[in-house]
Design a binder for these strands. Sequence first.
DNA 1: CTGAAAGCGCTTACAG
DNA 2: CTGAAAGCGCTTACAG
Lengths: 336, 336
Amino acid sequence: MKIVTIRDVAREAGVSITTVSRVLNHREEVDPITCERVDAVIERLNYVRNANASNLKQRHTDFVAVILRGRRNLFLTDLAERIVALGRQKHMHFLLEFIDEQDDEFLAARRLYLERNLQGIIFLGANLHEREGDIRGLDLPCVFTSVDASRLKSSKVASVAVDNFGAGRAAADRLIELGHCSIALVGYFGHPEDSTGQRLYGVLESFKNHGIPYDERLFADCDFTLEKARRCTAGLLKKNLPFTALIAMSDTVAMGAMKALYDLGVSVPGQVSVVGFDGIEQGRYCTPTLATMRQPAEEIARITVNLLLDVTSGVAGRHVLLKSEWLEGGSVQSLL
Amino acid sequence: MKIVTIRDVAREAGVSITTVSRVLNHREEVDPITCERVDAVIERLNYVRNANASNLKQRHTDFVAVILRGRRNLFLTDLAERIVALGRQKHMHFLLEFIDEQDDEFLAARRLYLERNLQGIIFLGANLHEREGDIRGLDLPCVFTSVDASRLKSSKVASVAVDNFGAGRAAADRLIELGHCSIALVGYFGHPEDSTGQRLYGVLESFKNHGIPYDERLFADCDFTLEKARRCTAGLLKKNLPFTALIAMSDTVAMGAMKALYDLGVSVPGQVSVVGFDGIEQGRYCTPTLATMRQPAEEIARITVNLLLDVTSGVAGRHVLLKSEWLEGGSVQSLL
DNA sequence: CTGAAAGCGCTTACAG
DNA sequence: CTGAAAGCGCTTACAG
């Protein structure tokens, strides 16, 4: 496969490589006629610009890193795919980086920045607790997706997330409204500024508002994987404490929990109602279908790309908070 | 964030940038003492090599593109994550590219190669039918994962896959052994050289061996998504043809099919037994658990990385065929 | 074992 | 509106 360079294009078009470069970058100074001629040659020679070379010059880079926390988080991977698809339409190139739950996203960010000279970074599912310094140190357009980063107050930082606190409260409100007052919780007990932490605190807020005491023994702490959720829930069930509903901090956790309930012969929703968070497609394929607080994935992806474009072009970062919505499912039953 | 370059390292270490470059690339000619000194400076200055610059020189590139067909294929995305994790240990960098079912992977491959000057390409779930020319045209180390590419006979092409034909036959054999003789098929009817096509032809081979006629009306053609599988299966059920078992061409398809069965009040496995392919984790969380032909994902990922390393270093590409294994599940019942 | 120099394919002041 | 030249941060013959 012969490699066509900008030099070949310039020669064929009878212009300098500077002019070709200008055409490639859609600079306005170029004479439309020259521009057309160059474009024709590019087309004819099947020229593709070498991104390594063009990214070498500091200013411009079309690489955007997407750092995704949690390999098996279906909601986040779905979001990542949507972002990549939308961003490509805007001529962004993505570097997808999966990191483990216990890994440090800012270390990964710093490394990627130095290695690739990034245009910006999209963090999916990042934990912000005590990381202000690290984020400021990056000094790069950053969009935090699925967690509210408004506390950060850096003009290069934007974020979009659902109101996780409100979502947690709404989920609990709903169950209580249906007559449940003994509710188990399964998931990671994060910091109040992290997304899952916010969900949990929202749930507790609802408990308080309704005068329902929070029983620590009904809390099962686990990672966001099917396997861990199943095991933790099984452990919880073996304590033989009575409860009529279970709130899982994500749909994946809910699916793991439902499996544990099923295995131990507890019927859903007959004996225990189950609610998740996220609204992943798989939840609609559970038996029974999983009730959940749905996040508007499509909208989140679209806003993420727009925010990155904004911040990159110098607009001060905004922090968008969306609403999640209750999605009915067969996994919940009214006690009234 | 100040950027440290190879020049800074050279100055600090009192050597030339050539020597630093040699240390970075683990060339053997370097005096161990010099090497140590340089390494110490690299460490101290927190130097990270700029990949754009090092990839600019033709010979060497650490970029490997992973082209994944089918955004929502959980088996392939799981495989991709494993490959990325394993490859990173071998100092590979990955460019993950998702393409849609109808997109052309070789067009994407060509573009990526020209843009990034790749070390090689890993194709996940590629279709090979009538693509020999395109593949030869790439002239780049290629590993086809999850499809057997032994027909291609290019020394730069390797592949690893399960014996899909054998897997299809084994799945059907098993159901027939359990007394099923009226079996519906759900999935895409691909070319005999594609992985899913091979599964299907394996199933038909088993039918033939057992003297069971293939009833076209029991075949539902669909994409590999939950939603399509659900709809197709629902359509099939509405034809009111009797069958006691259903073979889905992937676990995802099987899960969609189980949903359709559930929605229409057909009990699994009471009235219909269901079998999938792949062995994704989610299958273990279905109700009932999904019986399937499991592919050894861990092994496939490991071999993929090794094959790429081999082909890159000039070893002629091998074509590895692994066995899949029957994974018991509650979705299957014996009629005997 | 080490270094000076050319060059990878682009972009970007600068000059015209 | 256009081009010659410098330079991005590295690698790689080549010479010693």
